[in-house]
Computed example of a mutant assay.
Amino acid sequence: MRKGDIIQLIYLDKKNNISQRTIRVIAVSDSYIKAYCYTKKAQRIFKKENILGSKIIKRVV
């Protein structure tokens, strides 16, 4: 996962709700991904440990 990549996630939120999100990666750390979430139309921070599955939609070269 790199800055600018567009990813589709299956994510478990802090209330244990599972959702599918499409995001554009802004920054990646050891524990978190900062991204623009197209689903919520806002910037969000995702815990890596809560990502249940992911698929790269568009890779930035």
Rank of each mutant, 00 (worst) to 15 (best):
R2P: 00
R2C: 01
R2H: 04
K3S: 11
K3E: 15
G4V: 02
G4D: 04
G4I: 01
D5P: 03
D5A: 04
I7C: 11
I7D: 05
Q8D: 08
Q8W: 02
Q8E: 14
L9K: 04
L9S: 05
L9T: 08
I10R: 13
Y11H: 08
Y11F: 09
D13V: 05
D13C: 02
D13S: 11
K14A: 06
N16A: 13
N16Y: 15
N16G: 07
N16M: 12
N17V: 06
N17P: 01
I18R: 15
I18F: 13
Q20T: 11
Q20W: 00
Q20I: 10
T22Y: 00
T22K: 14
T22L: 07
T22C: 04
V25T: 07
V25P: 03
V25W: 04
I26S: 08
I26N: 13
A27I: 06
A27S: 15
A27P: 03
V28P: 01
S29L: 03
S29A: 03
D30Q: 11
D30F: 02
D30R: 06
D30S: 09
S31P: 00
S31R: 08
S31C: 01
Y32C: 05
I33M: 08
I33K: 01
I33L: 12
K34A: 09
A35P: 09
A35W: 07
Y36A: 08
Y36T: 05
Y36R: 11
Y36P: 06
Y36E: 07
C37H: 06
C37T: 06
C37F: 02
Y38E: 11
Y38C: 09
K40R: 13
K41Y: 12
K41A: 14
K41M: 14
Q43Y: 08
R44T: 10
I45G: 04
I45S: 03
K47I: 00
K48G: 09
K48V: 11
K48E: 04
K48S: 09
N50W: 07
N50H: 14
I51D: 05
L52E: 06
L52F: 04
S54G: 01
K55W: 07
K55A: 14
K55E: 15
K55G: 08
I57R: 03
K58F: 12
K58H: 10
R59F: 11
V61Y: 01
V61L: 04
V61S: 10
